[in-house]
Design a protein around this nucleic acid. Structure first.
Lengths: 216, 216
DNA sequence: AAATTAACGTACTGGTTCGTACATTCAATT
DNA sequence: AATTGAATGTACGAACCAGTACGTTAATTT
């Protein structure tokens, strides 16, 4: 049988079809707001198949999370900023994170939803534990280089820096709607987007150079 | 009739009792996850009263949001950092925001939940539109002072600075669980809390001084 | 004190939604 | 070609849950 041929019974295709649709629906509606019937209706197949492959609604949700986070890890693997000088490296890292969050909004919504339930599903999944370690390794190298060269003066560690960058980029997407309502600014509009992208890099670089702490 | 006396029919008390309970439940479970029966069970009264005072589940939810945001505004009114020199003023502002987010986690959860539904309820409420304006006014003053004194070099406006501070403080609380699962660090633990509080101030001050942009 | 209205409680309904029993089709194996 | 098991579709059940009909008690007014 040909690989690309359309076949009536195709386990792999049905499964990934369901996963793709479920990712969108869970991201938009949250776990409780999502309807299994709605997910089924948007797939090429029926609700029966969801239960056949994923057991129950929760099983489907966990599968969605695992796939989304695993894709994140894969995307991070492709990041190479080690060859850059420290200051340029953190700036590149910040801008890369900014762009990633800008283009992966479903993932952001899933993470948000996960925190509503105290990340109960992530905690239960071995596949997801310590998924962030590779990213931290990259930052550690940059920080060590930057301190060696005298560019960086802070004592912040890799987790701090990751959080600093992530908070800025994540918040812009995750809270865009309430922010727009309360402050009258759409942070995702092209001009603001471009300026905030620069801000992300400026902010980390400025912090690592120690301009803030020095004043105390 | 005495003001503090317990009475069987007490509209004000019943209403605020329901609101307080609903705030907790909506914050923990989200709008869809919250059960009207559960809210009712935790009050001193019955489900009938929820519909009597708030119409339906959505009406109760909007009332919860309006109360929570209004309390936020009231808290911000008490902030006075105008008398401080610019650098100290932004640092104080950052630390105050940090402390507020640390102690008002239900509000954070409500904001998070609100963004899942694209802030539809906030947008529909006149009471909540442009609620952030007073906070922006304070920041504008500080920025003007700082530029006049030569302390600040960036061209960022008040909304940018508010976002910069807010993102950091908000993220620490809102994403604490997934962050802990993925990076093995509890950002709310006392020692990390203290260090991150300093970081918040250092970061804004460093950014406003322009240490990042100067390198480009 | 009688009348009137506001505040409250109980018991129920109708629709929604997760999950499944049962029947069927396709594909690989012998 | 017959057989076997995996993959799929249909129709339905059972629980859950938002909202309500109806009746009762407390406070206010006259």
């Amino acid at each position: 049988m040909t690989a690309g041929a359309a076949r009536a019974h195709d386990a792999g295709r049905t499964r990934s079809d369901i996963l793709a649709v479920a990712t969108r629906v869970f991201a938009r509606q949250g776990f409780n707001g999502a309807r299994v019937d709605e997910i089924a209706a948007r797939t090429r197949t029926t609700k029966r198949m969801i239960y056949y492959y994923f057991g129950d609604k929760r099983g489907l949700y966990v599968a969605v999370l695992e796939q989304a986070y695993t894709e994140l890890r894969t995307a991070q693997r492709g990041v190479d900023v080690a060859h850059l000088p420290p200051v340029e490296a953190v700036r590149a890292l910040a801008e890369r994170t900014f762009d990633h969050d800008d283009t992966h909004r479903d993932l952001i919504r899933l993470v948000v939803g996960e925190n509503v339930h105290d990340a109960a599903h992530i905690r239960g999944s071995d596949a997801l534990a310590r998924l962030g370690d590779p990213a931290l390794h990259v930052i550690s190298r940059i920080l060590a280089d930057g301190r060696a060269s005298g560019d960086f003066a802070t004592e912040a560690d890799a987790v701090d820096v990751h959080m600093l960058i992530g908070a800025f980029c994540f918040f812009r997407i995750a809270n865009q709607h309430s922010f727009a309502a309360l402050f009258g600014r759409d942070m995702t509009a092209p001009d603001h987007r471009a300026r905030l992208r620069r801000m992300a890099g400026d902010m980390v670089v400025a912090y690592l150079r120690g301009g803030g702490a020095a004043a105390r």
